[in-house]
Simulated assay, not measured.
Amino acid sequence: MNFFDSTCQESPRCDELFGICDDQNGKKAYTSVDDNSKWVATVINKKKIELIFTAIDACVITGDQHPGRGRCDGMLTSHEHIFFVELKDKASDWITDAIDQLESTVQFFLEEHSLAQYRHKKAFACNKRRPHFQEIDQETQLKWFRSYGVRLDVQAEVIVI
């Protein structure tokens, strides 16, 4: 499985502000600068770093591949950044599921690729209905960082530093 398959990637974008959308229709997630009511995650890119969005669910990993194993919606990459992003639109009981999907995706990624080249490595669980930062217990944070070298955030803003 190739997480850098060009058929699953959008053209690079360096917008200061854009959204990541999932229309919940079985199709792949995508980015947009229009209609922020569709944005599940908001990407804040003040330095205008060139980012590539890759649709993971419904593209890199299709529905019939690895049944029963989760995958996140997409990832943003640059020369120094890799951000895995799971998009939710639920009022409650979503964080554990989102984190499980992110963890499964990071494991898939590490079976085929390395994270060594990236300086900034994060996984974001984003929810349109719960956009503000939600604290994750330190044990989970520490487990993620020790296991994968990836920081985990639960918030609807993906801030590119």
Score class of each variant (00 low, 15 high):
residue 144 W to A: 07
residue 94 W to V: 01
residue 141 Q to E: 15
residue 8 C to N: 10
residue 69 R to A: 06
residue 2 N to H: 08
residue 86 E to C: 05
residue 41 A to S: 13
residue 116 A to S: 03
residue 122 K to F: 15
residue 114 S to H: 09
residue 66 H to Y: 15
residue 13 R to C: 08
residue 34 D to R: 13
residue 107 Q to E: 15
residue 6 S to F: 11
residue 128 K to Y: 02
residue 9 Q to D: 07
residue 30 Y to T: 04
residue 106 V to S: 05
residue 91 A to S: 14
residue 59 C to Q: 01
residue 42 T to S: 11
residue 45 N to C: 05
residue 142 L to S: 15
residue 24 Q to T: 03
residue 39 W to D: 09
residue 145 F to G: 06
residue 154 V to R: 01
residue 4 F to A: 09
residue 145 F to A: 12
residue 149 G to N: 10
residue 114 S to I: 03
residue 47 K to D: 12
residue 34 D to Y: 11
residue 145 F to T: 10
residue 33 V to N: 04
residue 137 D to C: 12
residue 110 L to R: 09
residue 159 I to V: 15
residue 96 T to K: 13
residue 47 K to R: 13
residue 53 F to L: 03
residue 37 S to R: 15
residue 107 Q to A: 08
residue 117 Q to M: 10
residue 54 T to L: 03
residue 55 A to V: 01
residue 94 W to M: 11
residue 76 L to I: 07
residue 146 R to I: 07
residue 26 G to P: 02
residue 11 S to N: 06
residue 112 E to D: 15
residue 101 Q to T: 00
residue 43 V to R: 09
residue 160 V to G: 08
residue 134 Q to N: 10
residue 120 H to C: 11
residue 105 T to C: 02
residue 26 G to N: 11
residue 70 G to K: 04
residue 59 C to P: 02
residue 119 R to F: 08
residue 88 K to A: 04
residue 40 V to Q: 07
residue 51 L to C: 03
residue 35 D to Q: 11
residue 39 W to F: 02
residue 118 Y to D: 02
residue 135 E to A: 11
residue 59 C to A: 07
residue 128 K to C: 10
residue 138 Q to S: 12
residue 86 E to Q: 09
residue 118 Y to M: 00
residue 58 A to E: 10
residue 101 Q to D: 06
residue 146 R to N: 15
residue 143 K to V: 12
residue 81 H to L: 10
residue 79 H to L: 08
residue 146 R to A: 15
residue 48 K to I: 02
residue 120 H to P: 00
residue 51 L to F: 00
residue 24 Q to R: 14
residue 132 H to A: 11
